Amino acid sequence: MVITGPQLLAARISIRLAPADLAKRAKVPVSVVARAEGSPGEPAITIAQLNALMQALRAAGASFPPADLPGGVL
């Protein structure tokens, strides 16, 4: 399953987590969060960074909406 930038953004917003808080939980720079969420397709970050973001989001209670949902609506 490929996770897209809009999916990451929707997941973060759904749990009302600020980008800086996600970065801290995932132990990555805020710029990584911004780059990942700003990618229209597969995020332009390393696999390790993507895994860290996804793990932090899931630990906080987020789920990932399907990529084909308009606007990433849950």
Rank of each mutant, 00 (worst) to 15 (best):
I15N: 01
A20P: 01
I15A: 05
A60Q: 00
V32C: 05
Q7H: 09
S31H: 06
R16C: 07
R35M: 08
R16A: 14
S63D: 11
A48H: 10
A67D: 10
M54Y: 03
A59Y: 08
Q55F: 08
P19R: 11
D68C: 10
T4H: 02
G61K: 08
Q55N: 09
I3H: 00
P6N: 01
P65T: 13
A23N: 00
Q55S: 13
P70T: 08
D21M: 07
G38N: 10
A26M: 05
I13N: 07
G72M: 09
M54E: 11
A62F: 11
N51G: 14
A26L: 07
Q49M: 06
L69V: 15
A18W: 00
P19D: 07
P29S: 12
A18E: 13
K24I: 02
L74M: 12
I3A: 00
M1P: 11
V32S: 08
A20Y: 08
E37A: 02
L8Q: 00
P43Q: 04
I13M: 11
K24T: 09
E37Y: 01
I45L: 06
A23P: 04
F64I: 12
L74A: 15
G71E: 09
A59H: 12
G38Y: 07
A67C: 03
T4D: 04
A62L: 09
A48Y: 08
K24R: 15
G5N: 12
P19C: 10
A20F: 05
K24Q: 15
P65E: 13
P66W: 08
L17G: 01
M54K: 13
G61N: 10
K27C: 05
K24W: 02
L50R: 10
F64Q: 02
A59R: 15
P29F: 02
Q7T: 13
P29N: 10
V2D: 10
S14L: 13
L17N: 01
P66L: 14
G72D: 08
M1N: 12
A34C: 03
Q49F: 07
L53Q: 00
A26G: 09
V33G: 00
A34N: 10
K27Q: 15
P66H: 11
A56N: 02
E37W: 02
L9D: 06
T4Q: 03
M54Q: 14
I47M: 09
L17M: 15
D68N: 14
A36E: 00
L8W: 01
A26E: 02
A62Y: 06
P65H: 14
P19Q: 15
Q55V: 05
N51H: 11
M54I: 14
T46H: 12
S39T: 03
Q55H: 12
A52L: 07
G38I: 10
L74E: 14
A56T: 03
F64V: 09
A36T: 03
L9Q: 14
A23M: 06
P6D: 03
G5C: 01
L69N: 06
S31P: 02
A26N: 09
L69E: 12
A52C: 04
S39G: 06
Q49K: 07
A44R: 15
L17F: 06
A56H: 02
A26W: 01
